[in-house]
């Protein structure tokens, strides 16, 4: 399964090689042109010779990880997170470094703590990775500063029709995008697998600039807080209720006409669709939609519990529905274009 392979590969911002290599092999048979740009984005182009609107589908390859920033005198590794992470989830977990060495993030035994110590969250400064090294020299011979430690979560079915795995935020989009490339469309379709989303939407900025698409769809997973004890309106999104079409997030205000179009296509095709309650964190759309003269952009996401953690959870149905929706949109797409610009007047039914 594509998503399983993608989820279990390690690749954080600036070190996406393994994911990129895998995706390159996966999509090569289905695209006309394939290259990696100066930033490290993997670009695949289908139907390059066709006229018609140039459509970009974008998904980010990078995931959260921990960067080794120091090795202590005793051979323990100090780290900083790459991308936003709550250090509270790091305690008492195994990690893997450079795909070769295992390490653990331990914590002071409860027996040795002062009475109220357990009330205070542990921060990255207090944590370290133990790889079993005898000394600084021992550790330095195995691990270099700047190496990355990754989570070791296995991707597998979970509960009732769900999947659990790491790195789902970006890789869900990568998987849907790679699968869509196997279909035939009659316009130029660009696949942008971007780098460095987690540290500031940086890969997409570059890709959008040199690809200059007429329309872009950003695919990823989005926070589902439907297990929290706050009221329903605070859940952002819910698992099992279909893909999510964003109105607004921290980096983008999406075109309401485009959203109406998406809503209409979803309804016509009997695909469930939900809208996020509250505005979530940003994604690559933030870089893309303000590129050059501006690019019409929508963002479609798969709801995901525990998104910035070791073990995220998505629904198989949502994943499939998201794929179906994007596919339906792509089939409809030529109808809303006049040359290289969108003209909704053509489509009075929306």
């Amino acid at each position: 399964m594509l998503l399983k392979s993608l989820s279990e590969l390690n690749g954080t911002s600036g070190a996406e090689n393994l994911v990129r290599n895998f995706l390159r092999q996966t999509i090569e048979p289905f695209v006309d042109i394939i290259n990696t740009d100066k930033m490290g984005n993997l670009i695949g182009i289908k139907n390059d010779s066709l006229s018609g609107p140039k459509v970009m589908l974008s998904a980010h390859m990078d995931e959260l990880a921990l960067m080794i920033i120091d090795i202590t005198g005793e051979g323990f590794l100090k780290f900083r997170p790459v991308g936003g992470i709550d250090a509270q989830i790091l305690v008492s977990k195994p990690v893997q470094i450079n795909n070769s060495y295992m390490g653990v993030i331990g914590a002071k035994a409860i027996h040795l703590q002062k009475h109220t110590e357990g009330q205070n969250p542990l921060s990255c400064d207090q944590l370290y990775i133990d790889i079993g090294a005898k000394s600084k020299e021992d550790a330095s011979s195995k691990v270099k500063l700047g190496d990355y430690a990754y989570f070791t979560t296995v991707f597998e079915p979970f509960g009732d029709g769900l999947y659990k795995g790491k790195a789902l935020e970006g890789r869900v989009g990568c998987a849907i995008l790679a699968e869509l490339l196997q279909n035939d469309y009659d316009f130029p379709l660009i696949a942008g697998f971007t780098v460095q989303e987690k540290v500031g939407l940086r890969g997409a900025k570059v890709a959008a600039h040199h690809l200059a698409p007429d329309f872009a769809i950003v695919l990823e997973a989005i926070v589902a807080d439907d297990m929290s004890d706050c009221a329903e309106e605070g859940w952002i999104t819910e698992l099992g209720k279909g893909p999510v079409c964003s109105f607004m997030d921290r980096s983008t205000l999406y075109s309401s006409k485009l959203i109406q179009w998406v809503t209409g296509v979803a309804r016509q095709n009997g695909i469930p669709l939900q809208f996020p309650r509250g505005s979530g964190s940003g994604n690559d759309a933030g870089s893309i939609h303000i590129s050059k003269v501006g690019i019409p952009t929508i963002s479609l996401s798969v709801p995901c519990r525990y998104i910035h953690s070791f073990a995220s959870v998505i629904s198989e149905k949502d994943y499939q529905a998201c794929y179906d929706l994007v596919n339906a949109l792509l089939k409809e797409l030529p109808n809303i274009f006049e040359g290289s610009s969108i003209n909704f007047a053509k489509e009075d039914k929306f």
Binding site: G84, I85, D86, Q88, I89, G118, Q119, N120, P121, L122, F158, G159, D160, G161, L162, K164, V223, D225, M227, S228, D229, C230, G234, W235, S281, R305, Y306, I307, H308, S309, V313
Partner: peptide, 28 residues
Amino acid sequence: ASLSPHLFDKMESSQAVKMDEMVIDVGM
């Protein structure tokens, strides 16, 4: 999982999440 919303969006919190505020999600 933590019952408090957006746990993973908050970078700094002064109070560790309590066991009473955690639940187990079995996805069913």
